[in-house]
Design a protein around this nucleic acid. Structure first.
Lengths: 189, 189
DNA sequence: GTCTATAAGGTGATAGAC
DNA sequence: GTCTATCACCTTATAGAC
């Protein structure tokens, strides 16, 4: 689809996701987005029909990325190695999103669920989590598999006070996630 | 302070936290809260000066609970047993809050941070997390300690699709949190 | 302690000029 | 592709009666 016009659409997305992550979707007004871009609200409506459409366009991109991982994983054997590779691919995906994207979806679940593609995204995360555990997993293991992707998406802002570079935060998130999907030796006490 | 009048204040809090958890703070209007209680918006203003005051009253209660745990823990040796007991006390605290409270603070961080006591709450969680690790912890261990309390507050809704009772979800959250703060044996592969 | 009525302001969205 | 001007709506909050 030929949408190589002036890049305004992409600039709107970039500014929007940043503001959504910082103040939340509801508290971010179109006026605020427009001001930051030095255009008027009306200009936004040339590129997106509604405010919700902005966030939908953001989610669709992420959903496509998750689908790629799911499509790959469903043909793999359910081994620890596969699970670790899922985590690595997810980490790469998260890292490639615009700043604020993962924080937005992580900290605004309540908002998300009222949006149309929020349901879709939720479903993809469920699918991915299910691939990180065996079908007969205990309740604790189910919870572990659902928690496993959190450090990857959240390390950036969960460690924001820590003295570290973005790369180090990323590595820490990946390491913890890998640990959560790897076989655990008998517990010590 | 003698506030034993009719319990309307408490009913407002209970309804508010439920709606905040479900739709988010911003999307929940005072009209909605009032309707659910079969009173008018103006009646709410007799009990709370502003909408924000409702959420502040909710947070203050939780902060007091966290302070109790912190006060106890700061006189204990920094052993695995102490960390496990912190987790157990936090789990008990979370369990005793009104339904929706933990989900609200977990899924509405963006909203929270703009509210006055949100900062305070954030600080208490930081303090508690610091008590769950050694001062020279690696970045991954720092992340682990920050993640450790999540399953406790989030098991109820992270496992909402699972076939289990509330008690079982609670136990699973506690078990996983305990695992995250307990010494780990050498990794297997 | 709760009501009716209303004020003041921001919001998402649209029409039509350029 | 962006503008000005405007609309209808909903919000938080207040004044004053009962």
């Amino acid at each position: 689809m030929g949408e190589r016009r002036s890049g305004t659409r992409e600039r709107i997305q970039a500014v929007a996701v940043e503001l959504f992550a910082e103040h939340g979707y509801d508290k971010t007004s179109l006026r605020e987005i427009a001001e930051r871009l030095d255009v008027t609200k009306a200009a936004l409506y040339y590129h997106f029909n509604t405010k919700e459409d902005i966030v939908v366009s953001l989610f669709d991109d992420l959903i496509a990325g998750l689908d790629e991982i799911i499509d790959w994983a469903k043909d793999q054997p359910p081994t620890p190695e596969t699970r670790q590779e899922i985590v690595r691919r997810y980490a790469r995906l998260a890292r490639e999103r615009p700043k604020g994207m993962m924080r937005f979806i992580q900290e605004s679940k309540t908002t998300m669920q009222e949006l149309a593609p929020g349901e879709k995204l939720h479903g993809r995360f469920n699918t991915l989590s299910a691939m990180l555990r065996s079908p007969d997993a205990s309740l604790t293991d189910q919870l572990r598999s659902r928690l496993a992707l959190v450090p990857v998406s959240a390390s950036a802002f969960m460690l924001q006070d820590a003295d570290a570079t973005d790369d180090e935060r990323y590595e820490a998130g990946l390491e913890l996630a890998l640990e959560l999907v790897s076989p655990r030796p008998a517990a010590a006490d």
